[in-house]
Nucleic acid binder design. Structure first.
Lengths: 208, 208
DNA sequence: GTTTGTGAATGAGTTCACAGCA
DNA sequence: TGCTGTGAACTCATTCACAAAC
C-alpha cells in the first residue's frame, strides 16, 4: 500500500491526526473505538473517518467499531510511522535551532540526525545532539545516515539550491520552511510551511 | 470588501503570495505585469491568478496587464497589509523564542508586541524587544496594545485554555502552533500549523 | 439497536474557453 | 495581436444514505 496517489492529501493529514488520538487512547484503557469517537476527538465527521480509512482496507466490525490497538498499528504502518525516520536539517538559524530543540519530532518517531549550515561562524556549534556541519557535507552524511527526509530552514534566496542539493543526495521527502516554491523531480515529495504567509492570511480576516 | 467569506481560503493564501512577488518586482523597475508573469513566479496558472483577483474587482486592462504599483497597493489593502498589525505571543519555549527572533514577521508588517508564559522561571526574561510577562497579564496588555492577532506556541495541553483567554481578551485572529484543534467563537479566525503532523504526512510518501 | 463500508448526490474550487477591450 | 474577466464545464473531495454485519 505504498503512497497511493489517489488518496487525497487532506485524508493523509487526517490519518496522522487519527493516529495521534489512538496513541492517546491506547494508554487510557479502552480497547474499542468507533468512527464517531475518533471523529469527535479530531473534529471531523464519522463519515469522513470511515471514508479516509476505506482507502486502505476494512479495519472495523459493524456494530462493534475498531479494535483500538489493531487500528493504531495499521495506521502507523500505513503512515510509515512504525519505524524511526531519519531526517537532516539545513539551516541552523533561529528557526532551525528551534526545530532541533522542539522535542515534538523525536516524540513522533523522527530523528534529526544532522544539521548543516553554510555560515562558517555556525559550523562546529553544538545544537541538540548534533554538531553543525558545513552544507557541503550534506550528500556524504545523507548517504551514511540513510536519511530520507530533509528539512529546509534557510532564507528564501537559498531555498531552491538547498532543495536541489537534497534531491541530488537522495532525499525523498522535504519539509520546506523557506518562503519560495521549490522545484524538484516529482519522485521527491515536498510540503511547504510558510510562516510569514500564515500570518498574512490571518490579517485578511481581521474586522475593519 | 472586508473578509468576504465566499472567497476560498486557498485564494486568500495565494493573494498573499502574489503580493510578495509584486513587492519584489516593484524594486526591479518594471511597471506592468500580466497574470502570466505573476503565475509563473508563484507557480500557479494565469487563469487562477485572474480568478483570484476577480473576487475583489477588476484591476487590469485587457491587452496590457496590471499596473504593478496599483495592483500591489490594492492587494495590500485587501489583505490588510497596508498597516502594521500588532500581535501577541503566548509561549516562550523553543518555538516561541524562534518566532520572536525570526525577522520575517517584522518584515511583513507584523509586530510581536508582547510575549507571555505561565512558567515563572521564564517570566522576566528578555526575548527580542520584549520582556516575557506572566500569562495572566495577557488581557490587560492586549487592550493596551490594541493587538488583534494572537500566536499560540504552548504545549497541546494548554492550547485550548490559551485560545479561550485570547478570545476573551478581544483577539480576533489566532495562529495556533499547539497540536490540538482549538474551539473559539466563530467571530475569531483560527489557522493552525502542526509541525509534527507535517512531518508525519511526509513519511507517508516515502518509498518502501 | 449499533456501527461499518460504499455507491450516489452534493458542493467547492479549478480549469477551460471565449467574448470583449486595448 | 495580446490580455483581461467570467460563465460553463469539469474535477475532486466531502456528505448523504442505506444495505450488510454484528
Amino acid at each position: 500500500m505504498p503512497a497511493n496517489p489517489s488518496v487525497p492529501e487532506a485524508a493523509v493529514s487526517r490519518l496522522a491526526a487519527y493516529l495521534r488520538i489512538l496513541n492517546g487512547l491506547a494508554s487510557s484503557g479502552a480497547d474499542h473505538v468507533s468512527s464517531a469517537d475518533i471523529g469527535s476527538l479530531v473534529g471531523v465527521s464519522p463519515d469522513q473517518v470511515r471514508k479516509d480509512l476505506s482507502h486502505f482496507g476494512e479495519f472495523g466490525r459493524p456494530g462493534v467499531g475498531y479494535d483500538l490497538k489493531d487500528l493504531r498499528d495499521e495506521l502507523a504502518r500505513i503512515m510509515r510511522l512504525d519505524r524511526v525516520q531519519v531526517a537532516v536539517l539545513a539551516g541552523a538559524g533561529s528557526l532551525g535551532s528551534a526545530l532541533v530543540r522542539y522535542g515534538g519530532f523525536a516524540q513522533h518517531g523522527f530523528r534529526i540526525a544532522a544539521v548543516f549550515d553554510i555560515d562558517p561562524s555556525r559550523v562546529g556549534a553544538r545544537l541538540g545532539n548534533c554538531t553543525v556541519e558545513h552544507l557541503s557535507r550534506l550528500p556524504d552524511r545523507v548517504a551514511e545516515l540513510g536519511a530520507a527526509i530533509g528539512i529546509i530552514a534557510v532564507p528564501g534566496s537559498a531555498g531552491q539550491s538547498v532543495a536541489a542539493l537534497m534531491e541530488e543526495a537522495g532525499i525523498k521527502a522535504i519539509l520546506n520552511f523557506a518562503p519560495v516554491k521549490v522545484k524538484v523531480n516529482n519522485s521527491v515529495k515536498v510540503r511547504s510551511v510558510d510562516l510569514g504567509r500564515e500570518l498574512e492570511c490571518l490579517a485578511y480576516y481581521l474586522p475593519e
